[in-house]
Design a protein around this nucleic acid. Sequence first.
DNA 1: TTCTTCTCTGAACGGTCGGTCAGTCTGAAG
DNA 2: CTTCAGACTGACCGACCGTTCAGAGAAGAA
Lengths: 224, 224
Amino acid sequence: MARARSTEETRRGEIVDAALRLILKNGFHNTTLDQVAVQAKVSKGLVSYYFPKKDELFLAVLQLMIERLRSDLESAYRAHLPARERLRLNFRNLFDNGKRTRQYYTVLIDFLGQALRERAVQGYTEVIYETVLTYVEWTITDGIRSGEFQEVDAHKVACMVVGMMEGLVLQWLFSRDSVELGDAYAMCERLVDDLLTIPPTNGSAAVQVGDAAPSDTVVSAAAR
Amino acid sequence: MARARSTEETRRGEIVDAALRLILKNGFHNTTLDQVAVQAKVSKGLVSYYFPKKDELFLAVLQLMIERLRSDLESAYRAHLPARERLRLNFRNLFDNGKRTRQYYTVLIDFLGQALRERAVQGYTEVIYETVLTYVEWTITDGIRSGEFQEVDAHKVACMVVGMMEGLVLQWLFSRDSVELGDAYAMCERLVDDLLTIPPTNGSAAVQVGDAAPSDTVVSAAAR
DNA sequence: TTCTTCTCTGAACGGTCGGTCAGTCTGAAG
DNA sequence: CTTCAGACTGACCGACCGTTCAGAGAAGAA
């Protein structure tokens, strides 16, 4: 007795959702097709029907995550706010909701582990990093154009900001005693202030931030 | 025909080494006891003889990694150099040898994935993060004591520095186009200059960095 | 109704892998 | 020498899991 039919789209979505929920709980490798079938309230055979190889199913899960991430970043980027506020929005997305962040990174780390060995996954994780970096870089560029930020190398600063964001999340995830999310948020804020914010109007000289080798580097804004 | 005997210590070491090499290549989950046995030139039974459960073997591998990490950090910390140079040493350890760093993180990420779900691994990853943070924090504290650095909250700055280090490594690992190790190195250098180095002697006023939120936080030193 | 097409089922298969075990070999002690 | 402890072997077992497959049920077309 076959159950009520439904569109291919719907079924695929249900199965991917189920898989995501299980990966969240048990990890990539400990999630079996049996479990996915049960969670999706579907027969084991149907899972294979839509996703002939287990890998295909998990790539679909990864794609779902990427899409959600991109949409989050997009809506922060599109907000009608000063660049500084939009960066803050990104920080909040990451640091305000511990449970959500934990879940996201739980899955992400699983896939990163895969990516280091399997070609198929590599492309996807690249997209993840490039997506995040791109949106942050755009926001910074906007801020520079509007005169809100100093004239810096937007790409490099984006790397630094994103780097610290992720680095701090990892510390929080794996050594709760060391960092709390609130602290992490404050640290990122501070980094942005240091690197981007134009120092309070003085007659002081412009501060060239940016890059080059380690020579010029960071001239911390000597207030006055 | 049993092979030449050897001390328990030696054998265990050989097996753990073999396991580490395989995990490096194939990952935690794709490494079987058979493979370990072959790589260690030992029978499958002997692997189980020394490590009755597969988990025990892999925890031993993790412990080996931690010990190596700690010893690296220790020797950088013990170097007779100014604090600033010792931090630089840490950066070089991470960014100068791409292959080594790649290998280290390949295994680390595997274990981090485990840690999010299995209690047994959690303790170990905590040690990893706390070890790194501690050595960096000590170095910073030394620098402050010696008057080399500004008077900052050593713990918070350590978190920021380590955070950026790891964050940049991840970007390099998973999106090679975005960051190169040389750039990453320069960025960390720059962060340290910004946060710690005492600005060139001016009669300038104190610079209030950090922010309100967690109140005290990082108060960059009033460099007289 | 009958036919066709596509969704869906669940038993079964085959391969893999962690763990076991009966027994062998070695070196040292007595 | 004999004895004994314990290092060591490799065949084997049982569980698990991805994948296959023959066929059932449902919906639309004719």
